[in-house]
Design a protein around this nucleic acid. Structure first.
Length: 103
DNA sequence: AGCCTGACTCGGA
DNA sequence: CTCCGAGCCAGGC
């Protein structure tokens, strides 16, 4: 486990229930500007943790796929259970649900 | 070291 | 809206 990953996880944990954040946003909050890919990489390594990874989506407000479509459906279900709505095209209206990190 | 891959993002066409 | 190319970084070979 590397320190950068820890910073990323800490940033993700700050995302409140019912809100979502983008990879790039998490990267900035974690002090790693332009390292969106690193965020995805770090989250991919997650296994059984208290990190709300399901609240992290890409810049388009869509859930990033990773092989099994099953996980995407699972993530969407968890978000909807927290009150996050999806558009007919499967996107999340970021203007309304994106987490605004406070300095 | 080089090359390829990947839960990404942005600007341009 | 979609597709492309470039920039980014960690890991494995």
């Amino acid at each position: 486990m590397i320190a950068k990953a820890q910073a990323i996880y800490a940033a993700v944990r700050r995302v409140p229930k019912g809100k979502v954040a983008t990879y790039g946003q998490i990267a900035r909050v974690a002090g790693l500007p332009r390292r969106a890919r690193l965020v995805g990489y770090a989250l991919a390594a997650l296994e059984r943790s208290d990190v709300p990874w399901h609240r992290v989506v890409n810049a388009a407000g869509k859930i990033s796929e990773r092989g099994e479509p099953m996980f995407v459906a699972q993530q969407r279900a968890m978000l909807e259970r927290e009150g996050v709505e999806f558009t007919a095209s499967g996107r999340i209206p970021l203007a309304r649900y994106q987490w605004k990190a406070q300095a």
